[in-house]
Amino acid sequence: MWYYEKKLQYPVKVRDCNPRLAKYLIEQYGGADGELAAALRYLNQRYTIPDKVVGLLNDIGTEEFAHLEMIATMVYKLTKDATPEQLKEAGLGAHYANHDRALFYQNAAGDPFTATYIQAKGDPIADLYEDIAAEEKARATYQWIINMSDDPELNDSLKFLREREVIHSLRFREAVEILKDERDRKKIF
């Protein structure tokens, strides 16, 4: 069960009306390395992972939903007042024809979200290594979007999200360290 806090994890401000950026940002919404894929991946893996790291997957999976909400807010703000003409110019004509200004789980190229983005191998090490890779890929995706965006306020939020990917990657590495630890061996600190 979850408690919902009616505020964003980090403030989202958008300076310019720039629907084209929304087209790129949707990659983090419904793309293979996006926040939806991340949240579903971790929250699904937690059932079959050793209990020492279940809590970690639960926490990070939950935080990914908070990130998803931030991305949704960005996309919404960037498109809500754009005219059909502006959307067309931004390459969102096909999206408008299908969805109006509604958000849709798809990547920047318009491919709909698919469960095949998410792996669940059942092997704890394989799953955690995938999670580490997913975080690094999400970090890189944020970098490429920041490189294309000249909105300083939006970039501020994107940099926050990018840093969270760095921290999550470290936490998954720590989870691997916990699982490979020789429990019976005496440790001297």
Binding site: Q143, I146, F160, V166
Partner: peptide
Amino acid sequence: ALLHGTLWPDLYSPYP
């Protein structure tokens, strides 16, 4: 800490 996205300066990764 909020502005950097982490509690620890040593874990901060600047970008660009």
